[in-house]
Design a protein around this nucleic acid. Structure first.
Lengths: 191, 191
DNA sequence: CGTTCAGTTGACTAAGGTCAATTCCCGTGG
DNA sequence: CCACGGGAATTGACCTTAGTCAACTGAACG
């Protein structure tokens, strides 16, 4: 269930034919670890799909980095607010490992939308899933302790500690790496 | 710019005619302070528009309440995740003052969507603005201190302290009322 | 008036931050 | 094959922010 075609057809309900049309405009992009897919200040002109690898979106404030999200294999990646508004993005998109992405350029995406109403399903799927994900994170940031957020993350992405460093996980959780280290050491004692 | 018709026509780009069609299905609902528009566990079957008054959405955890959002006059209100998925809502919607709302029932909304593609604009406006708002709050919760969030809130809604109690503002900020009280007392000293 | 609820203040606690020292791990070059 | 260098993670000591609980003030309203 981690490839683009399956998600389009099985999850979103589009047809093989749609996938073939999409394939024609998809651009395959290879990123090395630490490469940027998008830098803050630029307009996001694409929707990406991660074939292989990991990315993060983060914002900078007073010289510190804050990870807004971490994107694993099989997920869509975009600075969606910037994509929607076509205004400069406040966040950066950066690879945390060597990564392969399929890119749908904004222009081609608009063409697809015009070609048939079916692509509306895709836009709605994207908007809805992103919204729901944001709501969950908002609630978690508001109601859960750092320890609870850490456990939730492990439950959602059991493999994440093998894929990204503690620095990035801590930043995503809203704490410092030192604090995450302490949380982990306590976790073992309490089980 | 606080009434439904103006937003529909000037902001979303629909026509007078659309507004007239919508008017036929709108239900006017009066809530007293502390009345619930939606209780957790129920499915949200409407989009509301606040004609007059204030509401909050909040979740409960371990007996504590956490305000997810506060909705003022002229804004849309819904448990949008529940509305989208037609699954039970995790959050509650409650009036914080006597409130008048226009309700678009889910069923009628679906009918409108079918009647003409133009209503797609409405759905997209709603989804996009809600998403952007969530992103801003997510970033603020992650990167700003309670004091910064408090200042941001006052800047965004200067009138909010006249409309809702400190208890609700504190909960929205993710802190306790006592802490907000201390933040306020320090604020005056530092200006 | 007295009750009730919102807000403030004080004393203490807990969670997480900061900074510095140390250890672990892993890749690279001699 | 080993030694070393550098980033990642851990640990310790101390600081800051916010939470907790209880007492108190004050305005609102029956």
């Amino acid at each position: 269930m981690n490839n683009f075609r399956d998600i389009l057809i099985d999850k979103i309900g589009l047809q093989e034919e749609h996938y073939l049309n999409l394939s024609k405009v998809l651009k395959k992009v290879y990123l090395k670890k630490k490469d940027f897919l998008l830098k803050a200040g630029n307009i996001c002109s694409f929707i990406g799909f991660i074939q292989e690898g990991v990315l993060r979106s983060y914002v900078q404030k007073d010289g510190d980095e804050f990870n807004i999200d971490i994107y694993l294999q099989g997920s869509f990646v975009s600075s969606y607010t910037s994509f929607l508004t076509q205004m400069p993005s406040k966040g950066n998109l950066q690879a945390l490992a060597d990564t392969t992405i399929y890119i749908i350029p904004y222009k081609d995406y608009s063409e697809l939308l015009k070609s048939t109403g079916d692509w509306y399903l895709f836009g709605k799927y994207l908007a809805d899933t992103l919204f729901i994900k944001k709501c969950q994170r908002e609630t978690s940031l508001l109601t859960d302790s750092a320890t609870e957020r850490y456990r939730l993350l492990l439950k959602t992405y059991p493999q994440i500690e093998q894929l990204v460093t503690q620095y990035h996980i801590a930043s995503y959780l809203g704490i410092k790496p030192e604090s995450l280290s302490r949380i982990k050491s306590l976790t073992y004692i309490n089980e």
